[in-house]
Design a protein around this nucleic acid. Structure first.
Length: 578
DNA sequence: GCCGTTTTCGGCCCGACTGTTTTCAGTCG
């Protein structure tokens, strides 16, 4: 017996594979959906599933019942899963890679496998090139060509697009759609509107009486590489850069149901439709339909939720993570909003790698309406940035005092530091230096790939230092290329709850660190958060909304976030710490 | 396979688009 400590993601991958193989095998759809649901739920689970297993409470996890909990138990106990081994012997696992091809689903994959012995993408491409596919029942020339094009597009589009790339692309497209005569509204839907950290396709929504000129203009945009589909209410295209976009056009009086539908998530929508059914209604993107076929139209999204008898749920919270149940129970959180943010606490100036002087940054922050700004330049050990030396702090304080004098009480400037947590786990300044600062962030930038115990211990050291106020971008991840450190987040949060240190949600869209799931876990443990842009230039102060969106995805309220507080309260909290 | 403020059994959302078809199956979101 070999034991393996499968991560949440490992388990999710295993059940996702099972779902795919069962689907090709032709198992009933609801069993497949159950495995998929369990996979999503395990992946998104806040704590470690391993710990839940040890407590014997696996079935507390949504979507995990008797059969799946037994499989998890077998995996943790034996390191194997007999069910999957048997299934793999029956259905070659390599078949699943063909499901990635657009327009290729389980039925076709099974057909190709059984009729032509095709078991992977290479076989598929060869058969398509040889014209073998079009001979099969239900297939034809066009279908075969589509599959070839699909295989080709796979190499162009291997991963989801990070939010920071998708957002400006969508803004640009929407601005151009708004120029088209007859377009009354043009907004983003889908995972972009929900502000997921990565986005599959861009989903764009337009309200217009006549859809055809809009569709026409959209499919003829100069950067369109190919039109994947085009109809009266929906078109989808692939752009030169590999990005895909879909456009829905609905009349203004039906825009509410359309926007709600296209914003998803799919699972959230299923919950809403279940609610509708309980009220004798059927909900689609077009309208609510009563049993006598008469319709209830919703011009805006608020009306959709009103008909269902629940409060409007912000798009960021529509992931079927209990939001509909909470709405029914009147227990939705009072989600934080951008306007709640009173100060920016993590920024850099020319004292390290920032672009602007302290005063210039303060003016930029004031222009954002902030009441306080903390300058938190790097400490010296981080080689790439010339950090602030211990001797520099006095001069920097003088510059802050001077800037403060010039700006009067229009904004409060705090002297802070983003002190490096060095590879050996010590901080880059001695305690007596940290004690002099108004606010101290401690962050990891180096040796992020240390073993779990070691890197976790470094963070714990910082958390337990009484002079540290906030842990900056805790995991150190960069989207999409760098995974965060292999931290034991349970231990990190337990220590943070104990010491009272705040954890950052870094708003930079390449970081979003803590992420939504960790943020939710943190507030549930009573940990305070701080949302900051880590701005190195004035433009980056605009990134705050990404951090707030991530917080909303984590059900965070203003009361959980220290930089929603008035400066006086913030100062008194900082003073109460070491 | 999961789940329960009508159910511990019998449900499990709804429609658009495409390509192959003479009325529909497959795929997608």
């Amino acid at each position: 017996m070999t034991q393996k400590r499968y991560s949440n993601q490992d388990l999710a991958d295993i059940f996702q594979t099972i779902a795919n193989l069962l689907e090709i095998k032709g198992e009933v759809i609801y069993k497949i959906l159950a495995y998929r649901k369990a996979a999503d739920s395990l992946r998104d689970y806040g704590g470690n599933v391993y710990d839940v297993w040890q407590e014997g409470k696996l079935t507390d996890i949504p979507g995990v019942g008797k059969a799946i909990s037994e499989k998890i138990d077998e995996l943790y106990t034996t390191g194997q899963l007999e069910f999957l081994d048997k299934l793999s012997a029956e259905v070659p696992p390599s078949l699943a890679e063909m499901l990635e091809v657009p327009d290729l689903g389980p039925k076709k994959v099974a057909l190709f496998w059984k009729e032509l012995g095709i078991i992977d993408l290479a076989d598929l491409e060869a058969a398509a090139r040889g014209g073998e596919l079009q001979e099969l029942p239900g297939m034809g020339e066009k279908s075969e060509a589509k599959i070839l094009a699909g295989i080709e597009s796979l190499s162009r589009r291997t991963t989801r697009t990070p939010l920071w790339k998708a957002w400006p692309a969508a803004e640009d497209l929407l601005a151009r759609l708004r120029q088209i005569p007859g377009v009354e509204i043009a907004v983003a839907g889908g995972s972009l509107r929900r502000m997921r950290e990565t986005v599959g396709d861009l989903d764009l929504l337009v309200a217009a009486e006549d859809s055809s000129p809009v569709m026409e203009a959209f499919t003829n945009l100069p950067e369109v590489l190919q039109v994947i589909g085009s109809g009266k209410t929906k078109s989808s295209v692939e752009f030169n850069n590999g990005l895909r976009a879909q456009l829905w056009v609905h009349p203004p009086e039906r825009f509410g149901t359309a926007l709600q539908y296209a914003s998803g998530s799919k699972d959230h929508n299923v919950r809403l439709r279940e609610l509708a059914i309980k009220q004798g209604l059927s909900l689609s993107e077009h309208a609510f339909t009563r049993q006598d076929q008469s319709e209830i139209l919703c011009a805006n999204e608020e009306q959709v939720y009103e008909v269902l008898g629940i409060p409007w749920i912000p798009p960021e919270a529509r992931e079927d993570r209990g939001e509909v149940q909470a709405a029914l129970a009147g227990e939705l959180p009072d989600f934080i909003e951008l306007s709640d943010i009173q100060s920016e606490l993590h920024t850099h100036s020319t004292w390290s790698d920032g672009k602007l002087s302290i005063k210039e940054m303060a003016i930029a922050a004031r222009n954002h309406g902030y009441k306080a700004l903390a300058i938190t330049d790097h400490s010296p050990s981080l080689g790439i940035t010339q950090g602030v030396t211990v001797e520099d702090f006095k001069k920097q304080r003088a510059e802050i005092d001077s800037a403060q004098k010039d700006l009067g009480d229009s904004i409060l400037i705090l002297q802070g530091s983003e002190v490096e947590i060095k590879a050996d786990g010590t901080l880059d300044y001695p305690d007596q230096v940290l004690a002099e600062l108004d606010i101290v962030f401690a962050s990891l930038h180096v040796s992020l790939r240390q073993p779990r115990e070691q890197v976790t211990q470094r963070l714990l050291n910082a958390i337990q230092n009484p002079h540290v106020d906030v842990i900056g971008h805790p995991t150190g991840r960069l989207i999409p290329d760098r995974e965060g450190s292999d931290l034991d987040m349970e231990a990190v949060f337990a220590a943070a709850a104990q010491s009272g240190v705040a954890m950052e949600i870094n708003a930079h869209p390449m970081r979003l660190d803590l992420n939504d799931i960790h943020a939710r876990q943190a507030i549930e443990m009573g940990i305070l958060l701080s949302i900051n842009t880590d701005a190195h230039s004035p433009g980056e102060l605009d990134l705050m909304h990404f951090g707030v969106a991530t917080a909303r995805r984590g059900w965070v309220e203003a009361k959980h976030v220290i930089n929603t507080w008035e400066p006086e309260r913030l100062l008194s909290w900082l003073r109460s710490r070491g």
